[in-house]
Amino acid sequence: MGPYLNKGLSHKRYAGRGKYRTNSKETGLMNRGKLIVLGALLAVAGAAGAQMSDEQAERAVETRQSLLQVMVWNYGPMGAMARGRIDFDTDRVKTNAERLVALSKMMSDAFAADTRSNDVDTEALDVIWEQPDDFAAKIEATIEASNALVGAAATGDEGVMTQAIGRVGSTCGSCHDDFRLDD
């Protein structure tokens, strides 16, 4: 919600700039008009530079951490199965893998809000927004591995599922390596 709200705001200011410009031509008050245009431009630049408020950013951080928490909630039991800590439950794997597909598809939107310039407590590294293509590729890998896990669950074979669960974890880890603060 944060970024969209912000975008809406910027558009409003942009529209306003056009209006003032027309006004200045009509009235011929060039100096005053110029000042107003300049002021409006600065407002637009300010809005763009500040991105979003810290409050919005905090909510964005909360949203993506919640998303990851729900992913852990779904992945955790499968990890425990793969490690032999709990018995395999093929239905559970199928359900949770399908959820992971849906959840991992939310990642790119969840991380769209650029919180680099905000004062927030986050382990998300700046490189997420500096190298968006690399980040998108990591997300894509998780979506693919989750899809493959749905397929593995369909076989009902514990060995196949164990492998596929490991590969999903591997895509999580690979993204953490590059895009999450270590400590």
């Binding site: 990890g79 490690r83 974890g169 880890g173 400590d183």
Partner: peptide, 28 residues
């Protein structure tokens, strides 16, 4: 813990704060 699949054997025995501190030490 790596928050994915692996954790040290004593991870479950300590508080999140302790684990965070240990993680900072380990990575730094």
């Amino acid at each position: 813990s790596d928050d994915i699949l692996y954790e040290g054997p004593w991870y479950v025995a300590v508080s999140d704060e302790t684990a965070d501190f240990a993680s900072t030490v380990h990575h730094r």
